Simulated assay, not measured.
Amino acid sequence: MLIKYLLLYTCLVLTISTQAQEVYEKGKILDSIPVSGTTDESFALYIPNGFKENELSSIVFIFEPAARSVIGIRPFIPAAEKYNHILVCSNNSRNSSYDRNFGIANNLFAHIFSHFNIKEDEMYLSGFSGGSRVACAIASLSNQFAGVVACGAGFPSVPDYKPSIQKYAYVGLVGDRDMNYKEMLKNKDFLQFLKFNNTLITYKGEHSWPAPEQISQAFDWLYLQKLKKAPSKEADEIKNLYLKAYKRIEEFKARNELLRASEQYERTIKTFQDFVSLDTLMQQHQKLLATKAYKKQATSFSNVLKQEEKIANKLKSRMTSDFENPKETNFGWWEKELAKLDVLEEKGDTNTKDMVYRIKFDVFARAYSRKNTLLYEENPEQTALAEQFIKLVYPKTE
Rank of each mutant, 00 (worst) to 15 (best):
M179G: 01
M179A: 07
N180M: 13
N180K: 10
Y181G: 01
K182D: 11
M184D: 02
M184R: 04
M184N: 09
L185V: 01
K186G: 10
K186V: 07
K186A: 10
K186E: 11
N187V: 07
K188D: 10
K188E: 13
D189S: 13
D189Y: 07
F190S: 08
F190N: 02
Q192R: 06
Q192W: 01
Q192F: 01
Q192L: 09
F193K: 15
F193E: 09
L194Q: 08
L194Y: 05
L194S: 04
L194D: 00
K195S: 12
K195A: 04
F196E: 00
F196M: 06
F196V: 02
F196R: 11
N197F: 03
N198W: 07
T199G: 08
T199H: 08
L200I: 01
L200A: 03
I201E: 00
I201Q: 08
T202V: 10
T202F: 03
Y203A: 07
G205V: 05
G205F: 02
G205P: 01
G205H: 07
G205K: 09
E206P: 01
E206N: 12
S208P: 00
W209V: 05
W209G: 02
P210I: 09
A211F: 12
A211T: 11
A211Y: 13
P212W: 12
P212S: 11
E213L: 11
E213Q: 14
Q214L: 13
Q214W: 09
Q214G: 06
I215Q: 07
I215Y: 06
I215L: 14
S216T: 14
S216Q: 14
Q217K: 14
A218V: 04
A218G: 05
A218P: 06
A218M: 03
F219D: 04
F219V: 09
F219G: 03
W221C: 08
L222K: 10
L222A: 14
Q225A: 07
Q225G: 02
K226M: 03
L227F: 07
K228V: 06
K228R: 13
K228N: 00
K229D: 05
A230Q: 12
A230L: 06
A230S: 10
P231Y: 04
S232A: 12
S232C: 10
K233V: 02
K233H: 07
E234I: 06
E234V: 09
A235D: 12
A235S: 13
D236R: 14
D236I: 12
D236H: 11
D236K: 15
E237H: 14
E237D: 10
E237K: 15
I238P: 03
K239N: 15
N240D: 13
L241M: 14
L241E: 00
Y242N: 04
Y242W: 06
L243A: 12
K244I: 06
K244G: 03
A245G: 05
Y246R: 13
Y246P: 00
Y246N: 13
Y246V: 15
